[in-house]
């Protein structure tokens, strides 16, 4: 997860670290559970070093939770840049594609078996995503994220179907 996410969560108002964690948890739902608690503090420390946030100590000296983090001017600048970025995570389809080509070319493995194994794996993931979505209350932010996951998996499954068809046709031709 990029540090900019933590930075952007701070942009609303100066917050304690645990408040940031709470916001993340709300937005991610069950996926937030996967995050380890330290991640946010690691990110905050790095951001502080980079001069994008400053920490104000409110109460007892050495308790991290008592620190209130505030965005600096540079930090604001960074958040704006991040929000306007047009980056999109690229799924690494080429690797899987080449794996199939290699398997067929070398004869070390059957591409169809590879596709099938992959398909089952994706279906199990999809099942998990759907079950997580079913467990979410209506209108939660996390449900939207889970929907995104499910749609991606669905797209991947469709591609796998195409792969299977294509490779089984090639297999029968040769």
């Amino acid at each position: 997860m990029r540090q900019e996410v933590v930075l952007a969560l701070l942009a609303k108002e100066p917050s304690h670290g645990y408040e940031l964690r709470g916001r993340l948890r709300r937005a991610l739902g069950p996926l937030g559970d996967a995050m380890n608690a330290g991640q946010v503090y690691v990110a905050l420390t790095r951001l502080e070093k980079a001069g994008l946030v400053t920490a104000e100590r409110a109460g007892a000296a050495d308790q991290q939770d008592r620190k209130t983090y505030v965005l600096t001017a540079d930090g604001h600048q960074r958040v704006s840049e991040w929000l306007s970025e047009v980056d999109w995570p690229r799924p690494d389809l080429a690797e899987f594609h080449l794996k199939l080509v290699a398997a067929a070319g070398t004869g070390l493995a059957d591409p169809i078996t590879i596709v099938d194994t992959q398909r089952r794996e994706l279906l199990r993931r999809l099942r998990e995503a759907e079950r997580a979505a079913m467990a979410e209350p209506d209108g939660s932010d996390a449900a939207l994220l889970l929907e995104g996951i499910a749609l991606r998996l669905q797209a991947d499954l469709r591609w796998l179907e195409e792969c299977e068809r294509s490779w089984s046709e090639r297999g029968s031709r040769s």
């Binding site: 996967a34 199990r124 099942r127 995104g148 996951i149």
Partner: peptide, 19 residues
Amino acid sequence: TRLTGGTTGRSLGALAGLE
């Protein structure tokens, strides 16, 4: 495909790009 039982290698968080 039997979908129950077998555990998935990666968590949902990973699918969402959280890891």
